[in-house]
Design a protein around this nucleic acid. Structure first.
Lengths: 225, 225
DNA sequence: GTATGATTCAAACAAACGTTTGAATAGAGA
DNA sequence: TCTCTATTCAAACGTTTGTTTGAATCATAC
């Protein structure tokens, strides 16, 4: 395929990844052209195809660079929870915290691009592009499997359907929390003051746990599941 | 600008709107070309520019066709709530229901494209395209102002910051609820069985209210706002 | 120095994009 | 029948897209 560099590669590859990440957040995948990326990275237009092969491969590389580590951290946190419980019940709030806490920690990192990446990741859950959707589903498969399974075991009386939906809702709330509040609110009341990132986690977490603990919905008469 | 038709226009214009709406959901704005739209609508390539002026104007028309009515319904529901209360306190759950209930009713309409439109609208909250963002913010300005104001009055002890954030989280949960659950879950456990749309509302609502009523977060020492 | 392989570069590629044009068609009013 | 206006149509417009090419440049190994 590509010859592997014998020395710790020049920084071109990383500059491209950084700028692509930043531009993808601002303009989306299709709204960001190769020329915008290579221009911002002070690289030649052909550099992306040389280092990554194609634009799609670059998108994958942007995600893999940080998503793999994030999901490994999540799995490690869950491993520890289960080890501490030693077969006993785990508090659902701990599981939720293991999943969303790690993500929000990364989102709070303004210095090394963690915040930029999490904004990108949050917007991408609902990405229409079929290629990106499938790639993300594969990257998430194991983590989803493990965390949903843990929640099922931690909430033995609750229908799995309901747990999955509520986890899905929590993902949506987190996605919007990270994307920020300026999107639709043209209100004067909402100042543009920089939010303290350390407040993001406790604020979101209390909402998530409130939703998770809410009484199950009453569907009326019927009752399958 | 454009000469107004003297007769109840031929259906071309509406066919274009329908197909554009459907394709925008599936492929996004930039991923949907004029040729895809006019091809699906059995219209000539120039028809979009003739009837709407430009692709951007078509996007606006797709939203305006249904969003205006939705937001008017929301405002009417809030009007009625406030009239019934007659200056007294309104239960926050009623306000939340007035906002999200109307949206989920439209999302439950599978026959006349309401579901398609709500899926599109949900994905568009986080749209990177600057033009679409600003258009949506303007369309939402009044509704946000009214509903947030109502919530402020209904929750006099709660900091406005927190209310806005929780409303934002609720928007995220609704967005994901409407987008569906198949996005990231490659799990075998989640069957593809058609969900009963009537269950969507009570399921989401109990989650939203649980989150809204959750105890306020504890930020530790400091305490501005 | 000379050879070797990795990287950069300017230039060009075909394909797809949104938009415009001017003629053809249709239908209603006089 | 003739006229006028709304709509449709095929064709082309100029840009921009992602990708490819082949030579130039650079750094290391011998």
């Amino acid at each position: 395929m590509f010859p592997e560099p014998r020395l710790p590669q020049p920084e071109t590859r990383d500059r491209i990844l950084d700028e692509a990440e930043r531009l993808f957040v601002e303009y989306g995948f299709e709204g960001t052209s190769m020329r915008m990326i290579t221009g911002a990275a002070n690289a030649n237009l052909a550099a992306v195809n040389y280092h990554f092969g194609s634009k799609d491969a670059l998108i994958q590389a942007v995600f893999r660079r940080r998503l793999t580590a994030l999901n490994e951290t999540r799995l490690a946190a869950l491993d520890q929870l289960e080890a501490e419980a030693g077969g006993g019940l785990i508090k659902p709030s701990r599981i939720v915290e293991a999943f969303f806490g790690t993500a929000l920690e990364l989102a709070a990192d303004m210095a090394h691009g963690g915040n930029t990446f999490m904004r990108l990741l949050s917007r991408t859950y609902n990405e229409p592009n079929a290629f990106v959707r499938q790639f993300l589903a594969e990257e998430y498969a194991e983590v989803m499997d493990r965390f949903l399974g843990a929640l099922f075991r931690a909430l033995p009386g609750v229908p799995r359907h309901e747990i999955m939906w509520r986890f899905h809702y929590m993902l949506g709330a987190m996605s919007f929390a990270i994307a920020g509040i300026e999107s639709v609110y043209a209100m004067a009341g909402m100042s543009r003051e920089a939010e303290d990132p350390s407040r993001l986690l406790p604020r979101l977490m209390s909402f998530l746990l409130g939703g998770l603990r809410a009484p199950l919905p009453d569907f009326g008469a019927s009752g399958h599941d």
